[in-house]
Nucleic acid binder design. Structure first.
Lengths: 220, 220
DNA sequence: GTAAAATGTGAGAATGCGCTCACATTCCGC
DNA sequence: GCGGAATGTGAGCGCATTCTCACATTTTAC
């Protein structure tokens, strides 16, 4: 690896440039889904996109930048998928909300096999801002369910929820279809219990911090 | 990569052989923790272990086999850490059990930085049997808490719990110490709610399938 | 139509890494 | 001691991969 900048080398300024970039990203997803992240080579990606290697390097100075671009695209698509939930959020039961969140996520991963393979890619290729935007979206959804929630709590719950959803993919991936379905159902329980805790008005302390009282049972 | 077998090339038969293997694994962990999995080279690992590259390849025919060995070691260490919980399990509250499970895991990852970096390693280097053993251990712990639980449910809950715990590490890793602590506390809520659902005797259907009844909502 | 900019091309340079091999050294049983 | 087995050594091979570059082609602007 000789170059280190992850920024695109050149932004496409013509229509065919944009088409190329789109084709390259598609090809990258296909190759990565096929052979895994590590084994996916730049030459093969360019080839599958009907381009040659030089063309690829015009827009993406290195593999890392290509990976980041792919991640960004997935992030936006996923954001769009959840965005529609934001409108209905207030009228959904927790039960329904959980089902929607999980099914959208599961469907997304199913339809984008490369997304899973990207988990193997080095951390350096991740874009924190994508996570941030997704967290904020989910936090807003939570706030629609329970407006009295503090923003800090909503954000924290969103971060954890997002991470749990993401983490489960690994488990789904190594299961056959039947087990996967039961795991999804099981995970619904997890999220339902957790979000019920946060989003349901409770008598005792409606806005108490989630830090449990240490007197009861800390680490004994 | 020319060789593909992941089995150790040669089992150490002398004490110095075992010392070498131990030193090599330690060095591998150190290098991987330092520079990440991908950037960790076999030469550097051998060098850091005070050995030369040929010596490394006597015991580990390729990088994959070294990675698997490291994973196996971590798996065993972690299993040992949780094993002690098995004895106390029956006498612990869910609150305490959750705290123990999580803190053991967090401590382990803190003390073994390479463990996190191994998440970047390709899937091929993972050993399903390690996961299986850990799942069974956790399932036994659950059964000690609630003997009436079916083994299938215990195993499924264990698989999910394990995955959630593992997945959270990624979130911890990208947070400063203060946020990390609050995330740990937050995750305790998740597990407490979830395990309360499974391990607490409920009136309606004590051994009903985990398919929720819409209306009761698990606890709280 | 023409010039300039954007994009396309692909052979191969440059690099770095996994891994081998022929041989030296150390250990162990007898 | 002796012989064989286990272990140690490290220069460098082979190879895949990333990335460059000099030039061709297409598009756009006027």
């Amino acid at each position: 690896m000789r170059s280190h900048s992850a920024a695109p080398r050149r932004v496409p300024r013509q229509q065919r440039g944009e088409r190329r970039v789109a084709a390259l990203l598609d090809a990258a997803a296909a190759v990565i889904a096929d052979v895994g992240y590590e084994a996916a080579t730049m030459n093969e990606i360019a080839c599958r996109a009907g381009a040659c290697i030089g063309s690829l390097y015009q827009f993406f100075p290195n593999k890392e930048s290509l990976t980041q671009a792919l991640r960004a695209q997935y992030g936006k698509e996923f954001h769009t998928a959840w965005e529609s939930l934001e409108n209905q959020a207030a009228s959904l039961t927790i039960e329904q909300l959980v089902a929607q969140l999980i099914h959208t996520a599961v469907d997304f991963v199913t339809e984008h096999p490369a997304f899973l393979a990207l988990l193997d890619a080095p951390r350096a290729t991740r874009n924190p801002s994508i996570r941030k935007v997704l967290r904020e979206l989910l936090a807003r959804i939570f706030l629609l369910q329970k407006p009295s929630l503090s923003k800090a709590r909503a954000l924290r719950a969103a971060a954890v929820t997002l991470q749990l959803i993401k983490g489960m993919n690994e488990l789904y991936a190594e299961s056959d279809a039947a087990t996967r379905e039961s795991l999804v159902q099981e995970f619904k329980i997890v999220l339902r219990c957790y979000l019920t805790f946060h989003l349901t008005p409770r008598f005792g302390s409606p806005e108490s911090a989630p830090t449990h009282k240490p007197g009861v049972a800390g680490r004994f």
